[in-house]
Amino acid sequence: MSLPHAHSRTARPMLGGEAHGHASLHDDCEGHGPIGHLDPRTRLVAAGLFALMVVSRDQIWPLVLAVGLALAAALLARLRVLPTLRRMLAMDGFMVAAVALLPFTVPGDPAFSAFGLTGSGEGLHQAALILLKANAVVLMLLALVGSMNTIALGHALARLGLPCKLVQLFLFTVRYLDLLHREYARLRTAMKARAFTMGTNRHTWQSVGYLFGMLMVRSLERSDRILAAMRLRGFDGHFPCLEEPSRFGRPDGLFALASAASVVLMMSQG
């Protein structure tokens, strides 16, 4: 599988880079591929319905189909292969354990044995279901929503009825992310220059605690300055909720139709 037109979203940010080489956490990545032309709300709602659909299915084939659909969406969104794979594999360690343990904890007909334990076919089946579900949802989420500019996502959330304050909080957070991450990287670099290495000891934990405490103090001061600047521009304690014109158009209609068709297809496989 090759996904052409590598878009600009970076992999997990490298820590310890400096200003020039710094990889941004959330570059603008809108407008790539057919998915990029859809209204953010359409994408959000579709992702939500898809997740609901997937989670409520309990047979292998509809779920395989769902993973296929998610892959198709990823192709259409022009996601880069390697970073996407890495994200999908980055399931938490203990979740991997939870799934890996299933064959041994679900009672049923013995299907295989390992380490002197007998695994059940039913357990294997359930583990497969969970892996398919989790990956289908994550892939679809990355394809439809992850490929969206985070600011656009904020506005879409507002238009879908999320409280204004929550959306403002979201937008402010997005704005601070890069600043925070850069400041974190600079401090970490300076610590490294003083021969600091991470270890399993109190000195490490305390030092990183100080690092985050300092990061917090500086960021809070920055937020004070931002608030002061906002006051200077007439902020009176109320955020106007941003209104963006709807971009719902023919592609969105088509996409909605296609989504509905896929859902029906998935249902009929059960």
């Binding site: 401090l187 670099t189 300076a190 610590m191 490294k192 021969a195 600091f196 030092s207 500086r218």
Partner: peptide, 30 residues
């Protein structure tokens, strides 16, 4: 890094502990 000390352009990048003594003791502890 133990033998070559780098003084940063912006001291705010270098100092991160609450008190001066802790910050100065940080390097020797490393």
């Amino acid at each position: 890094r133990a033998k070559a000390g780098l003084l940063f352009q912006d001291s705010d990048d270098q100092l991160f502990c609450p008190t001066v003594i802790e910050d100065v003791a940080f390097g020797p502890m490393n």
